[in-house]
Write a protein that binds this DNA or RNA. Structure first.
Length: 607
RNA sequence: GGCCCCGUAGCUCAGCUGGAUAGAGCAGCGGACUUCUAAUCCGCAGGUCGUAGGUUCGAAUCCUACCGGGGUCACCA
């Protein structure tokens, strides 16, 4: 009887289980079968933008539990006034009130339909959370599809500094989020160990080596890495080689030291990442692209050449001020303009070696050949010029089968007591990632980095982020979680351990207070928040949601002061206590789930 | 000059990818501690969503131009 159109089926497939989508799934067939569409010809009907109909929580809770824009969406296609359509849909919903668990329906504004549901709908959320546990809210967006997320990829020339921190945390949280959402995620780090900079690293290490042998090397010259983190490496080289390297030509000692230096720097970086709780599945070496007599960059160039995407030619000079050493010369170019880039890009340097871009294309080609049709790169905002050429390259190498999404993380500005923290690159006087984590801790660092859209700059004040107040969302959320635990502890004290048994079986129909219901509504929003966060690669949505949920919980907690009958624990009413503990447990589960997505510890107590 | 981000309350930021009277926190003002940890809560006040056009039933959101802030601009990474 109810004919489900393709569009509706699509919606059903696309949207994960959540209470709003469920309602939409029930409502849409009703509309399609109603008199509204009775006299409409097939052509008009097919053009109705049914996919734009949404059921969502209203902006203002006083409007009801849900709102839908169905009448507004249909108005144009049906050539009827939105209000009239709204009347018809409202009547439809009222007629089916029992099946939809609808308590009341009203029309507001230009034609919004506000829906108030039976309490039982919200109460059922508690059971759903408790039954699904850590799987509550898990969207099935990915359906097992492989996706590659590359992040950090800091150059192996020293320890990580704060600038790397944000991308590391963002990439890590994004990967977790996508994994939770049903993707088969590989977390990857690209080691730039093939360029001139690692030669500089090796020469800098050589200085420290000479120093370790007792030589006075004075100030580190311009163009070398001055950081003292190379001192232990110098000692290590002394222990390993004695003074034998001093007698060699650079061409002989450089590869030896380079290998040792890169290895040592990656050890430093891995240690830093571990401090932040950031993990990778694969560290991919740029050098490996051209090792073992197997030049995969050349292969990539051959492949593109076969498809007429490579040519010899000259580029126009950059607009604006011309570089002093600009020379107009013929180069090997990739036709990235065919795929939306502004100019074609060079693949070989003047000395014949590969450009960074060439290696990076080969690297992404490798990802593609490993079966990734979806790739995400997390880069610093200073790489934004890289967007067009790299997305162009991925299209080219995959013949349009793969797509690359690049997410940029903006700068982090450091403050202390409201004053900017000065950093000098030349002196190597950078604030390192380790400094930050040691001072404020992993949880604070991660949460604050994620409590902002990735493409907006971020102020990070060492003093503020350590304040244990609601000014600081980390503690605010963790405190809410801790409070759920203290509630259980208290309950066990008043009753006994059995008070916590089988809370998922509890009858929660007695929970009808406004702030209890508000809490349930908040819990019901979690699935759609997670889904949106995953779909748009925006983990910050989870962080903001957690702050909201914590707020609803703190608010309800404090309501128990004015209204003692609302307190969770009623020593004269075990049944009611258990119902309320079920709600508290649901809050705890969702808080922990969200914190896990962000990689922030859900602490059980804060003192 | 080209390209890319950003511009929302005094400050720091959200705003569910086009929906209703634009929301939080901080700062300000006024309240709530013999407590299920006040590390919290409740209330008040605060806005021409950078500016000007356009698209439409409807714009903070989409388009165009401009203004302001940041980034970037052959071969570097």
């Amino acid at each position: 009887m109810l004919k489900i159109q393709p569009v509706t089926a699509l919606i059903q497939k696309q949207i994960a289980m959540n209470i709003y989508a469920e309602f939409a799934q029930k409502m849409l067939p009703l509309i399609e079968a109603s008199s509204l569409l009775a006299g409409v010809d097939a052509d008009t009907r097919a053009k109705l933008p049914l996919d734009r109909i949404v059921v969502e929580p209203p902006r203002d809770v006083s409007h009801g539990d849900m709102a839908t824009n169905a009448a507004l969406v249909l108005a144009k296609g049906l050539r009827q006034k939105p209000r009239d359509i709204a009347e018809a849909i409202a009547a439809l919903l009222s007629d089916n009130a029992a099946a939809l668990n609808v308590q009341s329906v009203s029309i507001a504004g230009p034609g919004f339909i506000n829906i108030t549901l039976e309490h039982s709908v919200w109460q059922s959320i508690i059971g759903e959370v408790l039954h699904n546990g850590k799987n509550f809210g898990r969207p099935d967006l990915g359906q097992g599809e492989k996706i590659n997320v590359e992040y950090v990829s800091a150059n192996p020339t020293g320890p990580m500094h704060v600038g790397h921190c944000r991308g590391a945390v963002f990439g890590d949280a994004l990967a977790t989020l996508l994994s939770f959402s049903g993707f088969d995620v590989t977390r990857e780090y690209y080691i730039n160990d093939a360029g001139a900079q690692v030669d500089v690293l090796a020469r800098s290490a050589f200085l420290r080596y000479r120093e370790a042998l007792g030589e006075n090397i004075g100030d580190i010259p311009e163009g070398f890495y001055p950081g003292t983190y190379l001192v232990p490496l110098g000692e290590q080289l002394k222990d390993q080689y004695g003074s034998t390297l001093l007698d060699m030509d650079e061409t002989d000692w450089l590869p030896l030291i380079k290998r040792a230096a890169i290895s040592a720097m990656m050890d430093l970086i891995r240690a830093d990442l571990e401090k932040l709780g950031v993990a990778h599945d694969l560290f991919f070496s740029e050098q490996s692209l051209t090792q073992d007599g197997h030049d995969r960059v050349a292969e990539m160039i051959d492949d593109l050449t076969d498809r007429n995407l490579i040519y010899r030619g000259t580029l126009p000079p950059p607009k604006g001020k011309l570089p002093d050493d600009w020379e107009d010369r013929e180069q090997t170019l990739f036709r990235s303009t065919l795929y939306g880039d502004d100019v074609d890009r060079a693949l070989l340097k003047s000395d014949g070696s590969y450009t960074y871009f060439a290696s990076d294309i080969a690297y992404h080609f490798d990802k593609y050949k490993r079966g990734f049709n979806l790739m995400v790169d997390v880069l610093g905002a200073d790489h934004q010029g890289y967007l067009k050429r790299m997305t162009a390259a991925v299209k080219a190498i995959s013949a349009g089968n793969a797509s690359l999404d690049i997410r940029f993380c903006q700068l982090v500005n450091l403050f202390r007591d409201g004053q900017p923290v000065k950093m000098s690159k030349r002196s190597g006087n950078l604030v390192t990632l380790a400094d930050v984590v040691e001072e404020v801790g992993r949880d604070v660092t991660r949460f604050i980095m994620l409590y902002r859209k990735n493409d907006a700059t971020l102020d990070f004040d060492f003093t503020k982020v350590l304040e244990q107040s609601k000014d600081n969302p980390v503690f605010y959320v963790q405190y809410a979680h801790a409070r759920t635990h203290s509630t259980f502890a208290q309950a066990v004290e008043v009753f006994d351990e059995k008070i916590l048994d089988d809370l998922d079986q509890v009858d929660v129909s007695a929970l009808t207070d406004a702030s209890e219901l508000a809490l349930m509504r908040k819990l019901a929003e979690y699935p759609r928040i997670v889904e949106a966060a995953a779909k748009f690669y925006e983990p910050h949505r989870v962080a903001f949601y957690l702050n909201d949920l914590a707020s609803a919980f703190h608010g309800h907690w404090n309501r128990g002061k004015d209204l003692p009958q609302l307190r969770f624990i009623k020593d004269d009413n075990e049944k009611l206590t258990r119902a309320r503990l079920a709600l508290v447990l649901a809050v705890q589960i969702v808080l922990r789930s969200g914190l896990n997505l962000l990689g922030v510890d859900a602490r059980e107590e804060l003192r």
